[in-house]
Amino acid sequence: MHPQRKRRLYGVLFIVIGVGIATALTMTAFRENLLFFFSPSQIAAGEAPVERTFRAGGLVVEDSVRREQDSTEVSFELTDGAHSVRVFYDGILPDLFREGQGIVAMGQLGQDGVFRASQVLAKHDENYMPPEVAEALKAAGKMPQHEMKQYQTDGYSRENDSDYESGYRQ
């Protein structure tokens, strides 16, 4: 290659690699506290700040949802499989909010250990299938389960693969 072009090529590589390394370093430094996300286990262990806004995520515990009559107040237990925290919320819940569903709540933890949410968002998973297939999978006990892992750790290293989907892939 022409020496001048070679020099320019190295320039291009320098930009891409340099920016990549700089970004990777910045991200590792900020990863922990960038999003202020805490799991129920972290809240139980006292790692979450009190009376400061952060996000809490997990699954809504079955049979834990209690609605107040004549108001939009609702409370439920949020779990990551190991620990759970009670959440209070006053507002309209999204369509996909139901027991066993993954949600992300934004709010503050009170001195009493109760999480008061100002916003509750439903998380859905990456699985798409017709209702009949879902019924069949449920009957066979092969329904994809919400992964607890993603709510347990501090966010990353979520496992990529699991073999439960193979049930309806054929």
Binding site: M27, R31, L35, V104, D125, G155, Y156, S157, R158
Partner: peptide, 17 residues
């Protein structure tokens, strides 16, 4: 994968089927 996002993971562009 790296952060706790509200957005779900990839459905098609992933290592498994």
């Amino acid at each position: 994968y790296w952060w706790n996002t509200l957005h779900q993971g990839p459905t098609v562009a992933r290592l498994s089927a």
